Amino acid sequence: MTERIAVFPGSFDPLTNGHLDIIQRASQMFDRLIVAVATNTGKKPLFSQAERETMITETVTDLSNVSVMAISGLTIDFLHEHNAHFIVRGLRNEQDFNFERDIANMNHMMATDIESVFLLAKPENAQISSSILKEIVHFNGDVSGFVPAVVWKQLQIKLGSEQ
């Protein structure tokens, strides 16, 4: 039987509890899950790609079938390079659905062997976004309840050095 490999791509700047929940749930669905850490060219990242990779790796150490890798270029090319056939995406709301549906359709038109799998955010994570959290943190707000402990520690270090 062919190994079912999935990729969960994102910028994860920073990784949130919502992201972590999707990683945990997807890791139970697939033989292997690759968390593909990308740089969003339209945004100025708070953390470097290497810092994000490290934080995610430290957070998922208990998930033996999850690996963390950097991605550049098209997601479908990354999937093909790693013999993956599934893209995992989390959906928080209708706007996420509309955006992700269009990307999934385009990906499928470019690579018919790739299937998108959507996981709905749990209610407690539906309002969490990295952008909102960065805004709160910028004004010294406490987001420790919305991110893994490793990320909260790095946010405090990063903010201590920037303020």
Rank of each mutant, 00 (worst) to 15 (best):
N17R: 07
E100Y: 07
T16I: 00
H80S: 13
T112Q: 12
G10W: 03
M55F: 12
N40I: 11
Q28E: 15
N98W: 09
K134S: 04
S67K: 10
E58S: 14
E81S: 11
L119C: 04
S67A: 12
L15G: 01
A6Y: 03
H138Q: 12
A126P: 05
A104H: 06
T112D: 14
Q127H: 15
P123K: 02
K122Q: 14
T16D: 04
S131H: 03
E135D: 14
D21I: 07
F8Q: 00
Q28W: 11
S27V: 03
H80E: 14
S131K: 05
I128N: 01
P123C: 00
Q24H: 07
S116N: 08
H108K: 10
E53I: 15
I114E: 04
A111F: 07
G90F: 08
I132G: 01
P9C: 07
F78M: 08
N125R: 04
A121L: 11
S129D: 07
K44V: 14
S67W: 06
L120W: 10
M55T: 05
I23T: 06
E58Y: 13
T54C: 14
I22F: 04
V66N: 09
S130V: 05
A26T: 02
V68W: 09
N65L: 06
S129I: 00
N105L: 15
L133M: 08
T39G: 11
I34Y: 02
Q24E: 14
I56N: 07
A104K: 01
E58A: 13
L79K: 05
I22T: 02
F30E: 08
M29Q: 08
L91G: 07
H85L: 11
Q49F: 10
E81A: 12
N98A: 09
F12A: 02
N17K: 09
T16R: 02
S48N: 12
P9K: 05
S72P: 08
V66I: 11
V37Y: 08
S27M: 10
F139T: 01
N17P: 06
K134D: 05
P9L: 08
L119P: 06
I22P: 01
A38I: 09
L133C: 03
I34M: 08
F12E: 00
F99G: 02
V66R: 04
N107H: 09
F139S: 00
L15M: 08
S116F: 09
E115H: 06
I22R: 00
L63I: 06
M29Y: 08
E58D: 15
R101D: 06
S129K: 01
F47W: 10
K134Y: 07
A121N: 10
L20P: 05
G10H: 00
N98Y: 09
L46N: 04
S27G: 05
V7A: 00
G18V: 04
V68L: 09
M106E: 09
H82S: 04
I114N: 02
L20G: 02
F97D: 03
